[in-house]
C-alpha cells in the first residue's frame, strides 16, 4: 500500500507540472506537441520490455513482445514525425532583415 501512496504523490505532482508546462505552448505548436507527447506515452515500452524479458515463450512473454512493437511504433513514429514537422517551421528571413 505504501508504494501506491508514493505513486499517487508522484502522479499528482507530475500532472501539475504538465499543466504548468503545456499551458504556455502556443497554438502554433499544438500539433507537434500532440505527436511528441504521443511518442512520450510510448514510455510503456519500459513496462513491455520487463514483460517480454523471459527465457520462455509463455503467453505473457508473447504479449510483452507485442506490447514492445506497438509502443515502439509510437516512440519512433512519434518522435520522427514531430522532428519532421518542426523542421518545416521557418521564420521569415525577409521580415527579419526588414525589421
Amino acid at each position: 500500500m505504501e508504494s501506491l501512496i508514493v505513486s499517487i504523490y508522484v502522479f499528482t505532482l507530475a500532472v501539475f507540472i504538465g499543466f504548468e508546462l503545456i499551458t504556455k505552448v502556443p497554438p502554433l505548436l499544438h500539433t507537434p506537441l500532440m505527436s511528441g507527447s504521443n511518442a512520450i506515452s510510448g514510455i510503456t515500452v519500459v513496462g513491455a520490455l520487463l514483460a517480454a524479458n523471459a527465457n520462455n515463450w509463455k503467453v505473457s512473454t508473447i504479449l510483452g513482445v507485442l506490447a514492445i512493437a506497438f509502443a515502439m511504433i509510437n516512440v519512433i513514429g512519434g518522435f520522427m514525425v514531430t522532428d519532421r514537422m518542426l523542421g518545416m517551421f521557418k521564420k521569415d528571413k525577409k521580415t527579419e532583415k526588414g525589421a
Binding site: 500532472v15 507540472i17 503545456i22 512520450i40 514510455i43
Partner: peptide, 15 residues
C-alpha cells in the same frame, strides 16, 4: 512511466 504518462495526460486535457 507514471511521470511521463501524467505529463501526456495533462497535455491532452489542456488541448
Amino acid at each position: 512511466l507514471i511521470i511521463a504518462g501524467a505529463l501526456v495526460g495533462a497535455s491532452g486535457l489542456i488541448l
